[in-house]
Design a protein around this nucleic acid. Sequence first.
DNA 1: TTGTATGCGTTATCAA
DNA 2: TTGATAACGCATACAA
Lengths: 362, 362
Amino acid sequence: MAAKRPTVTIKEVAEAAGVHFSTVSRALSPATRARVNPAIVARVEETARRLGYRANTAASSLRTRRSHMVGLVVPDLASLLFPAILNGIEHTLQEQGYLTIVADTANDPERHRRILSAMVERQVDGLILASAMLHDAVLDEWLDGPAPIVLINRTDDSGRAPAVLSDDLRGIGLAMEHLAGLGHVRIGHVAGPQTLSTGATRRRGFAAAGAALGRRALPVAEAASFSREAGRLACAALLDAHPATTAVVAANDLLALGCYDALTARGLACPGDVSVTGYNDLPLMDLVDPPLTTVRFRHRDMGAEAARLLLARMAGQETAGDVLLRPELVLRGSTAPPSAAVGRGGAGPAAGGRRSPPRARR
Amino acid sequence: MAAKRPTVTIKEVAEAAGVHFSTVSRALSPATRARVNPAIVARVEETARRLGYRANTAASSLRTRRSHMVGLVVPDLASLLFPAILNGIEHTLQEQGYLTIVADTANDPERHRRILSAMVERQVDGLILASAMLHDAVLDEWLDGPAPIVLINRTDDSGRAPAVLSDDLRGIGLAMEHLAGLGHVRIGHVAGPQTLSTGATRRRGFAAAGAALGRRALPVAEAASFSREAGRLACAALLDAHPATTAVVAANDLLALGCYDALTARGLACPGDVSVTGYNDLPLMDLVDPPLTTVRFRHRDMGAEAARLLLARMAGQETAGDVLLRPELVLRGSTAPPSAAVGRGGAGPAAGGRRSPPRARR
DNA sequence: TTGTATGCGTTATCAA
DNA sequence: TTGATAACGCATACAA
């Protein structure tokens, strides 16, 4: 239908409408529209529509230094955690007239550096980074750059950029209380990489919750990455070292799925022999076998909140510190009271507690 | 570290390097670098780095009419199908120096229109659309627009834009042959929306495969959307009308999951009473209960292929027609030979075939 | 309220 | 090989 038009500019609209092009500019911009004769505004809009005028953002961006684009950097696009987060970001931004550039670092710092550079060159007005590491040299280079930065899901240790996070301490606490309430005493943690704030904070949360329950030095196995395979390996190591374990708190859902694999491999049932909890409540976690008990936070809200925070910063407002999303525990089939059975794979030296009956839920 | 620099331009680099700014421009651009004295190139690059120079793409885009940005439009970001596709697109494009703008129409045509407009205004060099409907007025408006378009996952009926698709006819055929090979005769189809090419083509594939097996007029129930809930409803309707059904071919995985729900609701076992197949092989489909037998194609390849196609079109090359990705059947636990049991919920008028023993696998 | 003039940072054409 | 200059499309300070 629309013929391959050779780009129509405000000058052509101006000529067709019989006014000066600066008037067209004013008439078309919501901010200045009020300053021009309503009749002319109507005429300009009509001719603009008729000629199929499309603003050239490159030109206006050059002039105004605002591109109305925001960059989102994620460490792994294929992770099931990001679709919903991206959704929340994108919708919130779109409502305010912003478009979102998305790029994937594939966990590669060099790539991270190139991406940030490319985004800044495209004059993004702000940046949302889901890719922060705890010590992040690349991030550091851009913290004082031209584009305001908001961190999401993970934070770094500089504390120089506001972050939108799940309250991991609380979330892990919820899982621990649930397991303790079920009667578990020998609880282990399959931790995530300690180079990431999620991995480190959840591990701290595990230790803190353990201490609060009067259990110090609960065993921890650290996974090399937040993946199912790494979870399997770490869980196997945990069970090797502590065969009497009756519950494992995994630092995220993928790790928990890996725990399922490790349990299956040694003929243990979940939750019959060992209970497992996850973190994130990824899509379909209610459908896996057994349905995963896990800690949930609203992914979409996390995205929306980060977008709002960035919008505020881009508007020059000072923002308060990090925002912590309140997590909730989703009870499903992967947790149950510890079984009374003993002697499974050489009970540890201090296996006495394992005989205690399940405590009442509190 | 880097101080809040007030944007350094080629002019400042030029002054610091003691050359004219047009020389800086030439020295910094790979295309023209050869035309300038190597010693000067080195000096310019050094000073550019020292001053922290960053190209302003808005300016160069204004001049060259190339933004090195591509727009990707999806109907539903939260769908588990897109992360991998986006991944393939983004990586391929990134290698060629392009950044990807992503937006979500939420299946809203008005929103679709606004998004395309916003992307074109940002001077995207090309568009990849996963959002096409079979009859798509919005798409139609932009088919002759300034940015080349490639369709992905779905196509439209105009045939004016090349598309990268799964070979749905073949894929559904694979599922049908598998079921027939298992001995199923009373096979039903839970179809997707017929306003989408995927829904329509898979339904055609179902009918064609049925005919090839000598079964005409196999029952079909159409789901209102590609969602689990719509699948549940459609499957329930199918079973109401054809209680003797022993296998259902769902038009995608979400629909198949809805079939699980419908079966569970009426106390039927999968695959014991009814076998189910899906389409897409979304993540975690191997972990749901029962693991879903489904048709897979390489999502990441689909993205990469679309990106390559677009790259070619943006380079002015004529491209051949659509590219069809070869699907493969993934055998898992949701399909089995039909049980010999009869009389389940009022057997239909022509229930004779249900007694036939499972045929040997071929 | 509208017109005039200028510049945003870059590339590209033309001379030197 | 390098320098000078114009132009890309738009927004805005200023003048009318």
